[in-house]
């Protein structure tokens, strides 16, 4: 991982960042396997350089971004809470830039209502995309409403802990939406398409009764198989008093984002 030049960004929280070793060895990135250690163990063959991120759809200026042009955006340090849908959480010092900055460059048309995201498909480099049992359909796809995508909290991350992203964390560029469950943060993005209709997302396609399009962190709405009321903060309290902490609405970012969902029934739009 190479060092990145960054400036302090807004929204950084006053909580102890999770150890880098935990952030980089306990991952969900099913393209490399379904075990938590699989992404760090099985991503050796993955080549995040060179890279092309293509942005198209309902935009005035469809464009392709290579790594240099992504790194040319003013990179900021953003330390966010990350709440996994599996009821554990971390605090991760991301490096990235607002997705809105990139969207401005491609000039979305008035008809664009959503952004659809797509992860790279490279079975020869990603062992989780090979073999008999495929846990998900590839490519991994995600989506945001355009106002969510343009929210100043939403970033495209190109690094963490001041260095370029490790492969297991979604190198070379991934999405971070801190008020949503971690699976919304699609990794190793190759394509973003501005669309009019709500796009299909990988987890809601697999189990619509368990995962919705919005996936906002919400202690009131349980996953059918476990409670979302509390979470284990990774690395805190150790093995014998792994303190559970209450999960906060919108992962503690309610002041910034609750207004995006005014009037919506969040039990239905989970």
């Amino acid at each position: 991982a190479a060092a990145l030049k960054t400036t302090p960004g807004p929204f950084t929280i006053d909580e102890e960042p999770t150890a880098k070793s935990d952030v980089t060895s306990y991952n969900n990135f099913y393209e490399f396997g379904t075990g938590k250690a699989d992404p760090s163990a099985n991503s050796g063959d993955f080549r995040p350089e060179p890279w092309t991120l293509e942005v198209d759809g309902l935009v005035g200026k469809p464009q392709k971004f290579d790594l240099d042009s992504l790194h040319a955006f003013p990179l900021e340090d953003r330390t966010y809470r990350m709440r996994c849908v599996e009821a554990w959480s971390m605090v991760i010092p991301w490096v990235g830039f607002p997705l809105a900055a990139l969207l401005d460059r491609v000039e979305p048309l008035g008809s664009a209502k959503y952004v659809a995201f797509e992860t790279v498909v490279r079975p020869e480099e990603m062992p989780g995309q090979r073999g008999l049992f495929q846990p998900l359909e590839w490519p991994y796809v995600e989506g945001l409403r355009l106002d969510e995508a343009r929210h100043p909290l939403t970033i495209l991350s190109v690094g963490l802990y001041g260095e370029t992203l490790p492969k297991q964390n979604g190198a070379p560029v991934r999405l971070v939406v801190p008020w949503k469950y971690g699976f919304k943060g699609i990794k190793s993005i190759v394509r973003m398409t501005l669309v009019e209709e709500e796009p299909v997302t990988s987890w809601s396609r697999l189990a619509p009764q368990e995962y919705g399009f919005y996936a906002n962190v919400n202690p009131e709405v349980d996953h059918p198989r476990w409670s979302q009321a509390s979470e284990t903060r990774v690395g805190e309290g150790g093995f014998f008093n792994a303190a559970r902490r209450p999960t906060l609405p919108f992962n503690g970012y309610a002041d910034e984002v609750a207004s995006l969902y005014a009037g919506m029934d969040l039990r239905k739009n989970y």
Partner: peptide, 13 residues
């Protein structure tokens, strides 16, 4: 686990 050598959510693992 007791010596902090399980990465991530050690208790769950």
């Amino acid at each position: 686990g007791a010596t902090g050598q399980i990465a991530g959510n050690a208790v769950k693992e």
